[in-house]
Write a protein that binds this DNA or RNA. Sequence first.
DNA 1: TTGCATCTTGTAATTATTACAACTTTAAAA
DNA 2: TTTTAAAGTTGTAATAATTACAAGATGCAA
Lengths: 148, 148
Amino acid sequence: MQAQRQRKVEVTTAELSRRLLGASLRPSMQRLAVLGDLCHHYDHPTVDTIYSRLHPQMPTLSKTTVYNTLRILCEAGLVRSLNIEYANQRFDGHLEPHDHFICTGCGQVYDLPHNRAGRLPDFGDMGLHVEREEISYYGLCRECQEKR
Amino acid sequence: MQAQRQRKVEVTTAELSRRLLGASLRPSMQRLAVLGDLCHHYDHPTVDTIYSRLHPQMPTLSKTTVYNTLRILCEAGLVRSLNIEYANQRFDGHLEPHDHFICTGCGQVYDLPHNRAGRLPDFGDMGLHVEREEISYYGLCRECQEKR
DNA sequence: TTGCATCTTGTAATTATTACAACTTTAAAA
DNA sequence: TTTTAAAGTTGTAATAATTACAAGATGCAA
């Protein structure tokens, strides 16, 4: 959530490790690092951003590992991937239900409180089984509004 | 909308031309072809799909032109671009408000009736100016449910 | 018709992503 | 303990998506 960006919630390594084990994933250094990065930032980073942040501390880290790890974490439900316009794939380590605002000026992504009734809609009559919902708003952030 | 996929709404070249002119865009063959393709199909095609469908009839058409044209049409609001997981960028020429269901098994995109109160929410207190909303549901279509 | 702006084309460059094979680490069995 | 097998990581190479750019074509307006 927006507010948490300030709060700086620290997630301990023990907690990250517990989450990985809970998903039957071995808590390797690389996985702890990637999951930790996503839990400690609220900027919905790209693969490249994550790699660039971790690489200085872990010079042997491979970008392929970041790709692999993100795929595995997504499949395990520990991370969600975000598909937004004007950018390549991004990731979010914060799993509480929330929506996103994407600034079409600068590309920045903001978290929003989840704006929706509790349950997912039912499209069973169309043969569709809904598992997940993604709501995104597009517009201009304050800075970009002022620029125009 | 789902139902229209059967109805096969035919949009005349005159109407496509009118739309382009209305957006101050010269109604070239290429633009008419790309916009027409999007208006006559309900499959949310990729750049490559559009190019492959048009190329046999217009052998000189360049893929760069398809990219350029789609960008221009999106900027003009005549087409919307769609960002869904498990796939590269897709496009939709049907502008009536509607949502999407994306099958995580086969990647097919289905149109859904717009499931939302009339107005866009207001995030003015956060400094955000919302212009557009995108709601996507993820899950399995009938065929993919049966396969599992 | 001439000239200019717009549009289209094709190639080349860039960027994102995936494939794959070799190497390393871990955990559990012998 | 060693051994072994599975899981995980790495780097390179390949592929795919997208953008940059310069040259050529088209259409409109003077």
